[in-house]
Design a protein around this nucleic acid. Structure first.
Lengths: 154, 154
DNA sequence: TGATATTCATTCGTATACAAACAATATGTG
DNA sequence: CACATATTGTTTGTATACGAATGAATATCA
């Protein structure tokens, strides 16, 4: 089945295929757009110029601190290069502090600062409101269904 | 209701709120991850080093050509600055050609080149396979449901 | 006509996102 | 111990993504 798809992919599309295919009806297009709308809502409501990824890193770090930079990246679904940039900006703001790991010379141990804790506390209810507004077009049942379906394709 | 949320957001979160909130269970986290997985599938399968946005621009341009750069951006949900970068790269590859609009001196009229048409034809069945693989964890009913729910929150 | 507003494209700055290559450090196996 | 392997963090390069500012061309309307 997957193999049949693969060999099909290697062949040339017919003119009728070209007419039929619509990008804006593909799942990828919807995923990108839905994410865009969420990020827009987040940016509009959240204070302190926090981005979605910075917020994810901050709140996840609060859960698992102290931890290494790469581990935080794994837990927030960020590439090593991406998490480094995010952490650097959070450090520059004074929300996160770094220290070398005495046990492992490779590791950079991350912790929240008081400022970081305060930033979370200050914005937590807004973050909840952002989730609420993003899901506002849906009923309670639809919200659970959407999250369940997204979980399956992650 | 929205007003109540707003004023709540202005207040400070309690320690219990901090314990309860989990980023990785918010809709934004799922949307970002689902999109990530889709992009990864796309990159792995699609040839010609085409990106998801380049593919969206190419195929949408095929539908509506000739059109202006900003119009193509609107139809593919891209910012003016974003669509410019995408178009520039497609032009550099020879997939898209640009010409000034005789009727409107502001406009840059875009068209697909033969190379662009060929690139679409060459990758169309793969694009279909990418959609299929992204949705592969879902049943047919779940797929329709997911797309419907995403459409509602876009 | 002429002032105002709108649209289009460009540019700058900041922030993800990831592949690839690299050095330093750990770990496990012989 | 020695060596192969894996992990951690860094850097570079490319590609979105978008706010904001700018300037040119066009549209609108009093």
């Amino acid at each position: 089945m997957a193999e049949a798809k693969k060999s099909d992919s290697a062949s040339h599309a017919s003119a009728s295929d070209m007419e039929t295919y619509k990008v804006d009806q593909q799942i990828g297009f919807f995923l990108r757009q839905a994410n865009q709308r969420h990020v827009a809502i987040f940016s509009a409501q959240m204070g302190d110029r926090l981005t979605t990824t910075q917020w994810a890193a901050l709140t996840k770090l609060r859960e698992i601190q102290p931890t290494s930079q790469n581990q935080l990246g794994r837990d927030t679904a960020m590439d090593v290069a991406t998490i480094k940039g995010v952490v650097d900006r959070l450090v520059k703001r004074g929300y996160v502090s770094t220290a070398p790991d005495p046990q492992d010379g490779r590791r950079l141990v991350l912790s929240l600062t008081g400022e970081g804790e305060a930033a979370i506390a200050r914005n937590l209810l807004t973050a909840v409101a952002v989730t609420e507004e993003t899901l506002s077009p849906l009923t309670s049942g639809e919200r659970m269904m959407l999250i369940e379906l997204l979980r399956k394709i992650c």
